[in-house]
């Protein structure tokens, strides 16, 4: 194995451990806590705002002070950033659907994946259907669902 791929694996391991720990410690993994955070008109619990706040407090200065000034990552790889600027319909539609799902169950992808070690059937069902949803959307984005639909209509 090349030194560079070992380095990439080590970075992913450190980042993965920190991310999982952050999700559990912050209580983002508790759907009741998430629901209470989203329940702004009821018994609102604002504490989870500090999760995004804390994350931005650390990430933003490192990005603008260090990462942005670099041409490449420390590994020599390019910075894989999206350079899309346009706010388009798929972005709005996608974010709306995601928000509906998030509000219904109190789970978004990070906390759900971080909770997998519990082998809790609620988490497993959520993850399986999330993967299914991703595959469906990928088919749609590749134009396959539409063409399928079109063929059906043609008959």
């Amino acid at each position: 194995m090349h030194y560079s791929s070992l380095f990439r694996i080590a970075v992913a391991a450190v980042a993965g451990l920190l991310f999982g720990a952050g999700m559990v410690i912050s209580e983002m993994v508790d759907p009741n806590k998430v629901t209470a955070f989203l329940n702004v008109t009821g018994a609102w619990d604002p504490s989870l705002a500090f999760v995004m706040g804390g994350a931005l407090l650390v990430f933003t200065p490192i990005y603008h002070g260090v990462i942005k000034k670099r041409q490449t990552a420390v590994s020599g790889e390019p910075l894989q950033l999206s350079h899309k600027k346009k706010v388009d319909a798929p972005l709005i539609l996608g974010a709306s659907l995601f928000g509906i799902g998030w509000g219904l169950a109190g789970f978004c992808p990070g906390p759900a994946v971080s909770s997998l070690s519990s082998m809790n059937p609620v988490i497993l069902v959520f993850i399986v259907f999330m993967l299914l949803g991703m595959m469906l959307a990928n088919q749609y984005l590749a134009g396959r669902v539409c063409s399928l639909f079109y063929v059906k209509r043609g008959h």
Binding site: V122, F126, G133, M134, L141
Partner: peptide
């Protein structure tokens, strides 16, 4: 839960 998972999956890909 299944419906929520499906919406999160589709939504995060589209968005």
């Amino acid at each position: 839960i299944a419906l929520a998972g499906l919406l999160v999956g589709v939504g995060t890909r589209l968005g």
